[in-house]
Amino acid sequence: MSVKFEIANMHVKQGSTLKIKGKIDNDADGFVINLGQGSEKLSLHFNPRFRESTIVCNSKDSGKWGQEQRDNHLCFSPGSEIKFTMIFESNEFKVKLPDGHQVTFPNRLGHSHLSYMCVKGGFNITSFKYE
């Protein structure tokens, strides 16, 4: 998948909330939002897949994928404009989907801050903020 947006040197601490708004391409198969320390060190790999109608989450530690976690609650579709809220807590990530459903994923790497974000595939960010 092609990289759409990449940020380094972020200073997102535990307890922070990231808000990401964007538009899903009309012909998207899926997309990825990665958060972590770098492309090979991901605390959260968040990957909605439209063909499989599922959201796959995983972590990557020094290039090695962890165990996948799947959630079948896919409440958005290609062509739509959506907003995610990602809450970064000490033990887990909480991702609030547009309909309020929450996907949680453990903070397996145990990092206390996030410095890297990357968006890949059929999602175009229109706004990004953290507080």
Partner: peptide, 21 residues
């Protein structure tokens, strides 16, 4: 201090960028 770096933005002529900090 080295601050945030964003790449692959693909901002085209006619488009705008709003930055708050």
């Amino acid at each position: 201090a080295c601050g945030l770096v964003a790449s692959n933005l693909n901002l085209k002529p006619g488009e705008s960028l709003r930055v708050r900090g």
